[in-house]
Design a protein around this nucleic acid. Structure first.
Lengths: 279, 279
DNA sequence: CGAGTGGTTGATACGTATCAATAACTGTGG
DNA sequence: CCACAGTTATTGATACGTATCAACCACTCG
């Protein structure tokens, strides 16, 4: 039942959460992708580490959902799967391709608040008020399974595992947003570095190269997601390239110096030690 | 294709949400506190409107939780209720007082990501990984009810209403984080205005004055929450005061010109029309 | 009464937005 | 196949908002 990433599994009696919380601490060198490094003693660490927590589900979790994921649907590049305000009927499991999730702004613009790839579930923010709270747009031709939320809820009513799964998935969304919020503490270089490492990790988990990949989104999308202008994103790519941390060819990214990239967002903090810890 | 959403009041059989979703659109004058004003036609509008959605629960919802909220607990000002990384056992219903929720940063500082007042539930971000993903600190002497999550889950397993309630509460946290993220699109004045109006509204719902109240948090807390330095918060208060929008005496706030304050965060956008709508 | 916390205000530095020009690429229709 | 328009990305010059550093005041608590 449940997710749990990482092996090694420090068998600590979680209340009922099976998942191991400890993960990669950005401050230490990142050895390829070895997961579960027990947090260096300190309880609450750099919370940005959650930014690197797995977004997908375990095979077991996925299997759970499979039973409901009958309704296959294709979304062509640039088409929207659902829009903010649409009545809430389905949550969607991404099968292949990539989605971006975004919020409409007052001025007609949009703010990207997440990217979803194969194995990830989107639409859970609609549970709150029965309408989608964000829009989902395909960044490439994408396939999803539509899961009727009503059915999911019914199933969960009689099945503690399923109930727990849904609860965990929603909670993870919250934690993810926490981490995303922390990006604002970093400057442009730190934000982009974190973004790239996150992408890299997720792509790796899907069988792609850890060091080389293709961006599905535009500079503007990345900027919107990171709270930067597209020009700044572009410039930052150039900087990384000059420093030989990356090779960039439009949307083709090659990570040359992963460790250095990791160091970037430890160093490039916005200098905010908002407050001292009171310990 | 697109936008749609909207009114017509659609008495749409909410999937299960009891709460009225439509609310105040910041762009229109804010008549005191009239709730449910059908959004002015425009499609997915200023998503920041969600920032003004009710955070508390309906009486019915509250009653539901009461049965489990036996375990009363007092938290003195400046004491923490739980810390990031603590094993997850309880969620907490705030009875009286105020809590701030925060995340630890790499450098030992913290980032405030929310404030919780009476009737609000905190701790749901811990469901994800079985450990608290944030810390909760009392801003004044505060009383909470500790609700064992295991029990809550068990109860939900046999009770569709309860299950729906928990799901909705979690989803609302997600939506709230969305809104919080949108604040970064505003400049200092817009952020502070939005913050004050939000506070005002929540306090009003608890029987306090809409226009006059006492801040429970420091300038640094506000700054951390809004992504600003405390000096900037202070300066912005001064500006509002000069413009006769507010009267500020340390933590005593008197809102003089509510409409003007509302206009502030329509105007003071960071100029980002990230992208054009494709209409 | 001195130390500590919280708040205000000023001068200046710095990061990123903004405006603008150009180039590379993409798809379209003649 | 080539021209043409429309994105997407890069790069430069400059403007502007907020962080930063610092001095100072008010208030509280031993």
């Amino acid at each position: 039942m449940h997710s749990n990433n990482q092996e090694k599994a420090t068998p600590r009696a979680g209340v009922e959460s099976p998942v191991v919380p400890g993960t990669i601490l950005p401050r230490q060198a990142w050895p390829g992708m070895t997961p579960a490094v027990p947090p260096t003693s300190e309880g609450a660490g750099h919370h940005l580490r959650d930014y690197f927590l797995p977004r997908g589900m375990s095979d077991a979790d996925l299997e759970c959902l499979e039973s409901l994921a009958l309704n296959r649907r294709k979304v062509r590049s640039a088409q929207t799967l659902y829009r903010e305000g649409d009545p809430f009927v389905f949550v969607y499991l991404v099968r292949s391709g990539t989605l971006k999730s975004s919020l409409a702004m007052a001025d007609g613009g949009e703010r990207v608040n997440g990217f979803y790839m194969a194995g990830e579930l989107t639409g859970l923010d609609a549970v709150a008020y029965g309408r989608h709270a964000s829009s989902a747009t395909a960044l490439e031709d994408t396939e999803v399974s539509a899961i009727p939320y009503a059915q999911l809820a019914k199933l969960a009513a009689g099945n503690a595992d399923m109930q727990g799964l849904v609860a965990r998935l929603m909670s993870r969304e919250i934690v993810r947003e926490h981490s995303h919020a922390l990006l604002s503490q970093l400057r442009a270089e730190g934000r982009l570095a974190a973004f790239l490492l996150n992408l890299s990790r997720r792509l790796k988990a899907r069988g792609y190269s850890l060091s080389e990949f293709h961006l599905r989104m535009t500079r503007a999308d990345i900027g919107s997601y990171l709270g930067l202008k597209l020009e700044t994103v572009s410039r930052t790519f150039s900087i990384f390239q000059q420093q030989r941390l990356l090779e960039v060819n439009a949307r083709h990214i090659h990570i040359i110096d992963r460790d250095a990239l990791t160091r970037v967002f430890e160093t490039h903090a916005h200098d905010d030690a908002w407050q001292k810890p009171e310990r």
